[in-house]
Design a protein around this nucleic acid. Structure first.
Length: 552
RNA sequence: UGGCCUAUAGUAUAAUGGUAGUACGACAGAUUUUGGUUCUGUUCGUCUUGGUUCGAAUCCAGGUAGGCCAACCA
């Protein structure tokens, strides 16, 4: 019963902290900047932060890191909240770094009073130049010698709007020769005369990340502040500021961000794909965004399962997107309703079938012991898939060929008697006979066939549109590939079949349902679907060992 | 080339000084009214050189390789 699962390095740290009584309970936070939609990489962080407090007890805050008014919008705030909830997590508190602007301002004043911060009038170029390089120390300019009183006065004037953007900044006074570039008197406040999505025009100075994030963590009593590897150099500054301010000592820990094959995972690049219309929107089913995956039909369970499987460590990684697809299939196999849909029809006339229609009962999901069934109309004229018939079959071909027999799923075994062609020699119809004793469920014919095909009655077929998606990029490691990432976009990532033929049961559909189109893949109803026009997205294909066999 | 981080099958992740294991993939077979699912088996690994130790993936030292850091972004 007790399946012992080993702990990742963060779980070990927490277990130790708790065992030693360092904390009674832990608090984590998920801190997105509301400047874009969440992607699967964020899902990893969400599952980590919320998962940790679920496992060890404690709470997780949702905190928007909204310290840069020019990139942030309420639209993004809303989408982020929706995505986290959809993933199945509930935050303890919904918080905003902008709620702390007054406190942060006081923190800055404290630093000035301790002569640990100064107002600098240099241009950004001058500041960059004076900073030195990793191998040469930086130099301090004359502004660093300003008195506490002068700094206080200037900082107040900055807040009052007396200066234009870029005219002055507030810098922490630390160490211009530190081997860590972030310690070389980092800028902690800058002037931006811009409206903020929450505070409006109340402020014209805004704290930088380094003067907001750790302080917000501290204000919220975050015990374990978990971020990605590229923030490692910030940790020294994070700790320095907390120490000088004498506030709650949150601790920062870093893990490796998620990279996946055949996709990009940076907000900047995803924004570009949207803005330059390579995809239709942030929730385009080809996007690695949570909303895109949701629209494509990926389940929240599958995403959480994926995040669990990939683990957490500090080593750079490139996860095979096939693992995500495995998780998606695993969930859908158990839950998706089976339906029959023919994409490229080939008409079959069953010459010896006398009845107008016979309704056969087929299970909705054979994986479910308590499966329901639906009725499917069987008649004299049906469609099968063109690729399921070959006039000259290769060996090991289990499907239909002249003189061959197959079962029609849930119905009868048929035999192909005649191939009808047009004047150009194209196959346009097959004449078959059915075996009346072979009815599914009470087969007394004694005939065994290797192949079972999906099919749709011509007279009862429902029309629909289907969108087939493929990976957005055709190189495995997009970030490493030569040239601009957009050169590697797969031009055939979307294929639209505007008319496919479906069994009528697909009509009574509700958008929560997930389907497996038999032998075709998993599909879901798209949000653009209407009663006039059904539109389905292919979530993921089925594994296809026959296609692999043919390739050989 | 200053500092920091990392290195285990194809990919990811365990083994916390004592039998290198798991998942995905690949390959082979069984089952199957989906060439799906399920089941079974096979394949493949500790970056390198030294050292400590009865014993090293693990500890130490040197090398090598990859990544990060010089935004008024986060």
């Amino acid at each position: 019963m007790s399946e012992e699962k080993s702990l990742n390095f963060l779980e070990e740290i927490i277990e130790k902290d708790l065992a030693e009584g360092k904390y009674q309970s832990i608090t984590t936070r998920f801190p997105p900047e509301p400047n874009g939609y969440l992607h699967i990489g964020h899902a990893k962080s969400i599952c980590l932060n919320f998962g940790l407090t679920q496992k060890f007890g404690g709470k997780t805050n949702l905190r928007f890191d909204d310290t840069n008014p020019v990139t942030e919008e309420t639209e993004y705030v809303d989408s982020i909240k929706e995505d986290i909830q959809w993933l199945g997590f509930n935050w303890a508190n919904e918080l905003y770094a902008s709620d702390y602007f007054d406190t942060l301002y006081e923190f800055a004043v404290t630093l000035i009073n301790k002569n640990l911060a100064y107002v600098d009038d240099s241009t950004s170029e001058e500041i960059a130049q004076q900073k030195g390089t990793p191998t040469t120390p930086g130099i301090r300019n004359k502004f660093s010698e300003r008195t506490v009183e002068e700094n206080l006065k200037l900082f107040i004037e900055m807040r009052e709007g007396k200066y234009a953007d870029g005219e002055k900044v507030l810098r922490a006074k630390i160490d211009m020769s530190s081997p860590n570039m972030h310690m070389r008197d980092p800028i902690i406040y800058r002037i931006k005369h811009a409206a903020h999505h929450r505070t409006g025009n109340k402020w014209c100075i805004y704290p930088m990340y380094d003067f907001a994030h750790g302080q917000s963590d501290s204000i919220e009593n975050i015990t374990h502040s978990i971020c990605t590897l590229e923030f490692i150099p910030h940790r020294e500054l994070y700790n320095w500021l907390i120490q000088q301010l004498e506030i709650f000592p949150s601790k920062q820990y870093e893990f490796a961000r998620l990279n996946m094959t055949y996709t990009v995972m940076s907000k900047r690049k995803l924004l570009q794909l949207v803005n330059e219309k390579h995809v239709i929107a942030w929730d385009d089913p080809r996007m690695p965004t949570i909303s895109g995956m949701r629209r494509r039909g990926y389940g929240a369970t599958a995403l959480r399962d994926f995040c669990d499987k990939i683990g957490v460590a500090k080593r750079e990684n490139l996860i095979d997107i096939g693992l995500l697809e495995f998780c998606v299939r695993e969930e859908l196999n158990k839950t998706a309703l089976r339906r029959m849909v023919v994409f490229n029809p080939l008409k079959i006339t069953i010459t010896n079938f006398g009845k107008e229609v016979e309704w056969v009962s087929i299970e909705d999901n054979p994986e479910d012991e308590n499966t329901t069934h639906r009725k499917v109309p069987f008649s004299k004229e049906i469609y099968i898939e063109q690729e399921d018939f070959l006039e000259n079959p290769p060996k090991k071909f289990f499907r239909l060929f002249p003189g061959g027999k197959v079962r029609l799923k849930g119905a009868y075994i048929i035999e192909c008697n005649e191939v009808v062609k047009d004047i150009n020699g194209n196959i346009i119809e097959l004449k078959c006979s059915y075996i009346p004793e072979s009815k599914s469920g009470n087969d007394t014919s004694g005939i065994h066939v290797k192949g079972t095909l999906h099919w749709v009655s011509v007279a009862h077929a429902v029309h629909a549109e289907v969108k087939l998606y493929d990976r957005l990029f055709h190189v495995e490691n997009v970030a490493e590939a030569e040239g601009d990432f957009k050169e590697h976009i797969n031009p055939n990532s979307l294929q639209v079949l505007d008319k496919v033929y479906a069994e009528p049961a697909l009509l009574d559909t509700n958008s929560n349902n997930r389907y497996q189109f038999l032998r075709k893949g998993y599909f879901c109803l798209d949000k653009d679907s209407s009663s006039e026009k059904l539109v389905f997205n292919r979530t993921v294909t089925l594994k296809d060992t026959w296609a692999k066999e043919v390739k050989k």
